[in-house]
């Protein structure tokens, strides 16, 4: 399994490449992605698709929660939890 740091780096690279505001303003691992308007409802779809293909996960609708998606830290935690429970 990938290390926590590697997961975080992969997610950060994707967020920076995909979301123009993240690239422009810079984004820290704990920064709020949803409230800052960096990721919107369509962006969530892109994120879900990325996480599913990159980490081989299947994400259920009831896991689409602000808690799991609000920052790069939280996204990485979510991916790790999914890996250990899978």
């Amino acid at each position: 399994m990938e290390s926590a740091q590697a997961i975080k780096d992969t997610i950060r690279n994707f967020v920076v490449a995909k979301f123009p505001l993240a690239r422009k303003r810079g984004v820290g691992d704990a920064d709020l992605l949803l409230e800052a308007g960096i990721v919107d409802s369509l962006g969530i779809l892109d994120l879900v698709q990325f996480l599913e293909t990159e980490f081989g996960l299947h994400i259920e609708d009831d896991e689409l929660l602000p808690e799991n998606f609000q920052s790069i830290d939280k996204l990485a935690e979510f991916v790790q939890t999914k890996h250990t429970t899978a």
């Binding site: 490449a17 979301f19 123009p20 505001l21 690239r23 422009k24 308007g37 919107d40």
Partner: peptide
Amino acid sequence: AEDLIAHCGEKLPR
């Protein structure tokens, strides 16, 4: 291309 997209992201709504 990514730089241009980022530039647009600053100038235009999503």
